[in-house]
Simulated scan of single mutants.
Amino acid sequence: MTAEQLISDIIIPLRTSDTGEEALGIMNEFYVRHLPIVNQHELLGLLSEDDILDNDAEAAVGGYNLSLQHPFVRTKDHLYDIIRLVADHQLTAIPVVDEKRHYAGLITAEDLLRHFAENGTFREPGGIIVLEMVRQDYSLAQLARIVESENAVILSAHVQTFQESPRIEVTLKVNKQNITNILASFERFDFVIKATFNEVEYFDSLRERYDSFISYLNV
């Protein structure tokens, strides 16, 4: 999945002549706190809600000093690169440019979350297993062999690291809802099972997080 496949054309970029008040109106309408400023096809920068509050809201945004240093992704950038930039800069939207650095569109944080929620991996029935281990013990190949020994496969895997700690959490989604035998196999290999979820619990948790995120955007 690349940036060009996630672009939304619903939100029209700002012009340099637009005022801060007009920008706030668009932000409130689409539940974002960031909007691109575009002149013709050139991306000039990304305006944040804080930039408007730090300047004269009745003035044109073209005269603002922007706090963000041109964060953007290119059309061919991978989904993971997009997520990294969004997280690093705490963005609610990120501009996309083509190889000539012409503005191609916008990706919102809601678009990213919706992509994961609608991804086939999430839709396919299965069970969730969260393992805790130290970094040097992590081997996806070994985890896959254990799961496959119980006639199942890993649909997705996510590794969470912790700052200044050798500990990691590995979240696996497997294609079986009854994961009792898989859990027993992990225990035989001395893996620490931190949590498990069945399909209903998992999607309820995902929906709750999605609703919380939307509520946050609405604030």
Rank of each mutant, 00 (worst) to 15 (best):
A3Y: 01
Q5I: 03
I7W: 09
D9S: 02
I11E: 01
I12L: 09
S17P: 04
G20N: 03
G20R: 00
A23L: 04
L24Y: 01
N28D: 12
E29S: 08
Y31N: 04
V32C: 03
R33T: 11
R33P: 02
H34D: 06
L35E: 00
L35K: 01
I37A: 00
I37F: 05
L43K: 08
L44H: 08
L44I: 13
L44W: 05
L46Q: 05
L47R: 01
S48V: 02
E49T: 08
I52N: 00
D54R: 13
D56E: 12
A57E: 12
A60V: 09
V61T: 03
V61H: 01
G62K: 03
G62E: 03
G63H: 14
Y64V: 01
Y64C: 01
L68E: 12
L68Q: 09
L68W: 02
H70M: 14
H70G: 10
V73Q: 10
T75D: 02
D77A: 11
H78A: 13
D81W: 07
D81P: 06
R84Y: 12
V86T: 03
V86D: 06
D88E: 15
D88Y: 11
D88L: 13
T92K: 07
D98R: 05
D98C: 08
K100V: 01
H102P: 00
Y103I: 02
Y103M: 03
G105A: 00
L106I: 07
A109V: 04
L112E: 07
L113H: 05
H115L: 07
H115S: 08
G126S: 05
I128M: 05
I128K: 04
M133G: 00
V134R: 12
D137A: 06
D137M: 08
A152N: 08
A152F: 05
L155T: 06
A157L: 06
V159S: 06
Q160T: 13
Q160W: 06
F162S: 08
R167H: 02
V170L: 07
T171D: 06
L172H: 01
V174G: 04
K176F: 10
Q177H: 14
T180E: 12
T180K: 08
N181D: 15
A184K: 14
A184V: 15
S185Y: 06
F186W: 07
F186A: 08
F189T: 13
D190N: 15
F191K: 03
V192M: 06
I193A: 07
K194C: 09
K194A: 11
A195K: 12
T196P: 02
N198Y: 10
E199F: 13
V200E: 13
E201S: 14
E201Q: 14
Y202A: 14
Y202G: 08
Y202L: 11
F203C: 09
S205P: 00
S205C: 10
L206Y: 05
R207T: 10
I214S: 10
S215D: 15
S215F: 15
L217A: 04
L217I: 03
N218D: 10
V219W: 07
